[in-house]
Simulated assay, not measured.
Amino acid sequence: MGYLNHQQGYREGLLETRSVVKKEAYAVLTPDGLVNNVVPGFEDCDMSILGSPRMGARFVDYLVTVKNNGGNKEGFGGDGIQTFLYVVYGNVTATVDGQTYELTEGGYIYVPPHLELKFENNNNGEDSRLFLYKKRYQEAKNVSKPEVVTGNVNNIEAKAYEGMEEVLVQDLLPADISFDMNIHILSFKPGASHGYIETHVQEHGAYVLSGRGMYNLDNDWMPVDKGDYIFMGAYALQATYAVGLDEPFAYIYSKDANRDIEL
């Protein structure tokens, strides 16, 4: 079944999908075909594990639908694992080190590797959907650990990306060397594109928030749509054109940063 689109049983016509997985290089996962994973500590949650080391990533991404008063009350992350939570829609209460944070649509919280994240749905009986991330923190000499960061993308200025006014970027975390990663939202007006095909050591996990595009992934042009997940491995060629008429093509994505390569 495709639990996100509530389809069960036989389909009309042949089985088909836009999803493509080329381990270590790239992947596109569409909502149709994602399965519900049971993960200890997460109660009354539908969870899909997206990017992971089994795909070639050095992080794990999840798509979580939190129902009723569900959530994670035991603690997520900590003991060297940093976490990040973004509210796609709904309302959740996050708790870190005894401090609570109310997160509505577009809200987010970063939790450093020495603390645990707990959260609970707080959406008047309606579901909340979250994009959730974890990664083992990479220590660096004479660099202190980061602290909790929280905010809402609606309060973050969108800046022109590499001088292109039709492509906007929002930085969700500070440009601080204590972070070994960052989270951004990149938004393309219909018809806009990257200025060049990128080739770099950093890897990305991206969740499409709106619109659609054609994405060059390791020189394969792949159609991507709202609700899709994209993994881009180290050195995978990557660039996109936004297509469609009515809304920008936008996605939230992670990027490893501020560290040398370990041997």
Rank of each mutant, 00 (worst) to 15 (best):
G80L: 08
R212K: 15
Y207D: 11
G77Y: 02
G125N: 08
L263T: 13
E12N: 10
E166L: 07
I177W: 09
R259N: 05
T240A: 09
G211N: 10
Y62H: 00
L14P: 07
N36I: 07
G211W: 07
A158I: 03
N5Y: 15
Y137K: 06
V92S: 07
Q99E: 14
A140T: 10
T93I: 12
L186W: 04
D256R: 00
N68L: 15
G51E: 03
P146H: 01
Y207Q: 06
A239P: 00
S19A: 12
G163I: 09
A175E: 11
G51M: 07
Q238P: 03
K135R: 12
I156H: 09
Q8F: 05
D218W: 11
V20R: 15
E162D: 14
V28P: 04
H204G: 00
D256H: 03
V38P: 01
N152V: 08
T95W: 04
E247Y: 01
L50N: 01
G77M: 05
V201K: 13
S254M: 00
A257Q: 12
K189V: 04
L168Y: 04
Y253A: 00
Q99A: 12
R58Q: 11
K145P: 05
Y253Q: 01
N123A: 08
F249T: 02
K255I: 00
E102N: 10
Q82L: 15
F76R: 11
F188A: 01
E16M: 11
L186A: 05
G125I: 12
K23P: 06
D180N: 06
R136M: 05
G56I: 14
N36L: 01
Q138H: 13
I230S: 01
L173D: 05
F131Y: 11
Y101Q: 13
M232D: 00
G107D: 11
Q238E: 10
I183P: 00
R259D: 03
D180S: 04
V92R: 04
D225L: 12
A234C: 10
L63W: 03
Y3T: 08
V21D: 13
D228P: 06
L29F: 09
E16F: 14
D180E: 05
N123M: 10
G98A: 14
N36E: 09
G71Y: 14
V28R: 15
K23C: 04
V66P: 02
V243Q: 02
I109T: 13
N216A: 05
K134A: 04
V167E: 02
G106I: 08
S48D: 01
T30S: 08
G106Y: 06
E12L: 06
L263E: 12
N36Q: 11
Y101N: 13
V169N: 10
G107H: 12
V66W: 00
E147M: 07
